[in-house]
Design a protein around this nucleic acid. Structure first.
Lengths: 338, 338
DNA sequence: ACTATGAATGTAACCGGTTACATCACGAAT
DNA sequence: ATTCGTGATGTAACCGGTTACATTCATAGT
């Protein structure tokens, strides 16, 4: 059972041909007569030969593998993107080398280094901040093509697949204002760890002050261990001045916030409205259902992979794609209390 | 910037030594005088040399990479396990090749084939059914060590890291009966795609009939596109005979069920109690909070990886580990309606 | 003084593929 | 008859590491 796996030379000798012929048949490169082909196929079948990808990679200097680097799998939004990446990569015969960084820039460069050692053909990644990012520099100087997802388009010239976070933030502000809210707030994951959180916030603030309302209250919490309770309790000690609506930089945060508000005796949406961001599936099953901005995560992963793979196939280089986001109304956002 | 990456021979010639010496220094194998070491280190630094993992793998015939095969990333339970695997693997210098199979046995064997082509040193996987599984057979005949997670221990002799699903199912039954419920039901993901769903159901049924109650109603839904609505509506057309408590084979399903019940005008837990399985984080933030059985997913991933890596390091072979599960009470499970 | 021992290093084969180039046979064109 | 093109195949170098084995040299033992 545990026979040593057959090599191309085994196949060649069993079929009475040279390794070149076997290789040509296996890869459809160069001609081989139908007559010989039959022998070779038989030998391949008999020996259960499957070409060793390591040997092949060494000689071709490409691996048909892609690196995937994302902050965390705990957030379904990234899990969905990885699912999209996986689907597209598989369909085109590529394999994924995966790592998550827990939002740590140190881990970003460490992991990129490893991926480069393994000679991945390209990398799909979401990083803390694409401006002056060490990981991207390493990638560039190694000449390995890459594409960002979720990250903002930036002067760094690296293509990205994302949504218009600023516009979305602004729309959330307008939606909330349209519902009569005047005192607004934002609960965001750490700005240092997320350029998109910054953009969503920027858009939100712009939307709020653009309508002549006072700037929203901004609460920043940690990504890995967000202590929402600690942030919210002091604010809602005085309900008369506290925000009647909160925009959260992602759905997971929004769900936490709703839970905490409930435990503080505040009703969502009667007392406070909450809008999230991401559109994770579970949001539609909650009670109240979660109002949120949907980003097409699976599609984003797919499109990014597609572009990267096209590039590797010698076609056009990846370009930044801004995919459409949509506001999904939900019970968590209602009219301002009177 | 885009200099071709330096090879060990470049380093050797720049340092005026042989490749063997460089290799010995890099890998701490064999002696090299401090004097020479200095030159070599300098050359490595100057050239930015990093050993090519592909070349190394070819000659050592191991890759320091692990294959990870799971049904889906959409379920946070698997995402958590992968996070645990990632953490442990990284800590020990291993890289992950990742694929998801969407619960398809065909995909299982396809993806295992690819992983084997890349010569992963070991595989961590969750499959539909470990009995007579084609993927496991391939792995065995290739002599690649593997360890299951979530799957049940079985006659197949493959070690697995999981919880006692039968006992957990029985406990759920007892909990519900203790709350006064008499008409019980189970909503489960496809049995064909999940041996653990079968076990949870077995335990549940056993717990119910063991107490002299009529066998629970069993509803089976698809994993990838579970149409809970369609399953539940006919059952609750007659509320007098419908179950007053439902055990769901996973939390995602439970959340759906709660949503659907709510939309049918039924209150959870006043009219119907619901208990899930998995203990995904979001459950604690829901309203009502989700009663569930917690499995230590992150830990399961970690332990499995640890065992596999120990085995690869020449230590003991992996053995089946049954990790403790815990019942987490939640608002979704309450006393039976009178 | 002579050999045994061991440290430091180098040479070259090997891992499993790919592929440039050479070779050979055969029929067509001149 | 000679030349040429083309199809089919083989030879061997190469990708970038590792490592068994050989070699050299200095030192310790007798």
């Amino acid at each position: 059972m545990t026979e040593t796996t057959a090599t191309i030379r085994d196949v060649a000798s069993r079929a009475g041909v040279s390794v070149a012929t076997v290789s040509r048949l296996v890869n459809n490169t160069g001609k081989v007569s139908e007559e010989t082909a039959k022998f070779v196929r038989a030998a391949i079948r008999d020996l259960g030969f499957r070409p060793n990808a390591v040997g092949r990679s060494l000689s071709t200097s490409h691996t048909r593998s892609l690196g995937v680097v994302i902050p965390s799998l705990s957030n379904p939004v990234f899990a969905d993107a990885v699912a999209g990446i996986n689907a597209e990569a598989r369909a085109r015969g590529y394999t994924l080398m995966f790592t998550s960084t827990d939002y740590s820039p140190d881990d970003e460069v460490r992991t990129i280094g490893t991926l480069l050692d393994y000679r991945v053909d390209g990398v799909i990644l979401t990083i803390a901040d694409p401006m002056n990012n060490a990981a991207l520099e390493i990638l560039d100087s190694a000449g390995v093509p890459c594409i960002l997802i979720y990250n903002l388009p930036s002067a760094s010239e690296h293509p990205t697949v994302t949504v218009d976070n600023v516009a979305a933030g602004r729309e959330v502000a307008q939606t909330l204002i349209g519902l009569g809210h005047q005192r607004l707030g934002m609960v965001s994951g750490s700005f240092a760890a997320s350029d998109r959180a910054v953009a969503r916030c920027d858009g939100f603030v712009d939307g709020v002050v653009g309508r002549g309302l006072p700037a929203p209250l901004i609460l920043e919490v940690d990504f890995v261990d967000p202590n929402v309770e600690e942030a919210l309790v002091p604010i809602y000690a005085d309900r008369a001045t506290a925000p009647t609506a909160l925009f959260c930089s992602n759905d997971l945060l929004a769900i936490s916030v709703i839970g905490v508000l409930g435990r503080m005796g505040l009703d969502v949406p009667k007392d406070v409205s909450v809008i999230g961001f991401d559109g994770i599936a579970v949001g539609t099953h909650l009670h109240p259902t979660l109002a949120t901005v949907i980003q097409p995560s699976h599609e984003m992963g797919r499109v990014a992979t597609q572009q990267l793979l096209d590039r590797l196939a010698g076609k056009e280089s990846p370009i930044t794609k801004i995919l459409p986001h949509t506001y999904r109304p939900g019970e968590s956002a209602g009219p301002a209390p009177s």
